[in-house]
């Protein structure tokens, strides 16, 4: 029995990580209708920044904060120099460019930092165990769940209560009308990429700390799962995205136990995606906008 609860908790941790990744993708899709595949490169970039800063300063927390900042800057750069000039073309053009950027950056990480990846010099957190309602969990797992919850709640209240947040939602639902009401659509896009990328950087950094390992291709599979999540969630819907993230975490966690003999973990995730899409071609999400 406890074993299944353990699995559920594990699924929850991964679900939270997917949610942090998928927020950025959902926001970018909602605003620009671009499948931002290079988001995975931002995630891996965050992990690299975290490990390098943490090893240089000795403080992992500092590394994680630096990762968020650096990822935000990278995200803004991607929008400014890659997507902004491509918005006039059909959607496959920015999508293919995005795949190109992902492949390019991942190989760049491999060439710059080596194929074997990097580890944290001093990282006590994954082995700090806590007893919690009979579950044994480590500090990083708790940090991931807490970080995802706090970030998503902050984001929700930001978009619901602040002026710029409301402008943001207005732009997502109808850019022209929002603009005629005086919302600066360009500023909204920058904000969008900054926040989404910072969260991806955070996810990458925390997963790096959890595994005590950062490697060039770490973003690859996660990115496609995050894409799968936003598609299953019904592109552009934050609520659907959240449900889909947690569901995928759980499906993977249990799936590896029950059908792991026939399919590997990644294949289970995509089988889930394809099954949901065939049953509901528009995804799970009900709401159209954030």
């Amino acid at each position: 029995m406890l074993y299944y609860v353990d699995l559920a908790f594990n699924g929850l941790v991964f679900g939270c990580m997917y949610a942090l990744m998928a927020v950025g993708l959902t926001l970018v899709y909602g605003l620009l209708r671009i499948l931002h595949i290079a988001h995975a490169a931002v995630y891996a970039f965050g992990a690299y920044v975290a490990v390098i800063v943490a090893n240089a300063t000795g403080a992992i927390a500092l590394g994680v904060i630096a990762a968020m900042g650096a990822a935000a800057v990278l995200g803004i750069g991607i929008y400014r120099f890659l997507y902004a000039p491509l918005l006039a073309y059909p959607p496959y053009v920015p999508m293919i460019a995005s795949i190109g950027l992902l492949v390019f950056m991942e190989d760049g990480f491999r060439i710059a930092f080596g194929e074997q990846g990097l580890t944290f010099a001093r990282n006590p957190y994954p082995t700090q165990l806590h007893e919690f309602l009979g579950l044994t969990v480590n500090t990083v797992q708790i940090a991931i769940v807490v970080a995802a919850t706090v970030c998503l709640l902050l984001l929700a209240s930001f978009t619901a209560r602040t002026r710029i947040g409301i402008g943001w939602r207005a732009t997502v639902s109808d850019p022209r009308i929002a603009e005629s009401f005086g919302v600066d659509a360009i500023k909204v896009r920058y904000l969008n990429f900054a926040i989404g990328s910072a969260l991806a950087g955070l996810a990458g950094a925390l997963i790096g700390v959890l595994n005590n390992f950062v490697e060039p291709t770490m973003g690859f599979v996660v990115s496609y799962k995050a894409l799968a999540i936003i598609v299953v969630g019904g592109l552009g819907s934050l609520r659907g995205m959240l449900i889909a993230s947690l569901a995928l975490g759980l499906v993977e966690s249990y799936g590896t136990i029950f059908v792991g003999r026939f399919l590997d973990r990644d294949a289970i995730a995509f089988l889930f995606l394809i099954a949901v899409l065939i049953a509901r071609p528009r995804g799970l999400g009900g709401m159209k906008t954030a």
Binding site: L263, F270, L277
Partner: peptide, 22 residues
């Protein structure tokens, strides 16, 4: 839709390798 299809075919790619591997 077009963009859903791109993601689904990515899934087919992973699913194929994941299936054959086992």
């Amino acid at each position: 839709r077009a963009d859903f299809l791109a993601v689904t075919t990515i899934g087919v790619s992973f699913l194929f390798v994941g299936f054959v591997r086992k």
